[in-house]
């Protein structure tokens, strides 16, 4: 039996009818064509599907679409604004924080959760914060560099 789900995705109200077993990641990818959120495992380990749900990072493969009814979801597609890229996106680009790009959307969304908690993370804090996101290309090094750089940008923006 189909369930009705109303949610706001990247600022846009959306109405979708789904099977109860539909995962949030499927709703995003299949029903809303927001394919920037990726699936890279089936055991809730890899973090590739990370989005923010009411401001907090979640693995969208481990949230039922019906559980997100009424929620505010931000995906990678919602990070850039009319003014340009989000500081995290810009920093990943500037610092070669991605190679194949498959983990990148989830990684950026996890980093967004971190920067919402602290804008001055240490390298250890950054590494701890992205421990739930696998990357097989970068060895994480430039991802850490990118998140550190984005934090600097965010701090400078807040100061300015």
């Amino acid at each position: 039996m189909a369930e009705h789900v109303s949610l706001v995705v990247n600022g846009v109200p959306r109405e979708v009818d789904v099977e109860p077993r539909r995962l949030l990641v499927q709703l995003l990818r299949e029903d809303l064509d927001l394919t920037g959120t990726h699936i890279a495992c089936d055991t809730s380990q890899c973090g590739a599907c990370t989005v923010t749900l009411d401001g907090k990072s979640v693995k969208s493969c481990t949230v039922l679409a019906v559980q997100a009814d009424g929620a505010n979801v931000t995906t990678i597609e919602g990070m850039a604004t009319a003014d340009g890229l989000h500081p995290l996106q810009a920093a990943f680009w500037e610092n070669h924080g991605l190679q194949c790009g498959f983990c990148t959307p989830g990684m950026i969304m996890s980093a967004a959760d971190l920067l919402a908690r602290t804008t001055d993370p240490t390298d250890d804090e950054i590494r701890h914060a992205i421990a739930g996101n696998f990357c097989r290309c970068t060895g994480y090094q430039n991802i850490v560099t990118a998140i550190r750089a984005a934090a600097t940008t965010v701090r400078a923006g807040a100061a300015g």
Binding site: R29, D33, L34, T35, G36, T37, H38, I39, T75, I76, E77, M79, A80, L85, Q89, F92, W93, E94, H96, L98, G101, F102, T104, P105, I108
Partner: peptide, 21 residues
């Protein structure tokens, strides 16, 4: 040089096989 392909990959506009319908 910053990578040309990153623009799409950091904005969720990459196109992997499962993204094709």
């Amino acid at each position: 040089v910053k990578r040309v392909e990153d623009q799409r990959l950091i904005t969720g506009k990459g196109r992997y096989v499962d993204d094709i319908k």
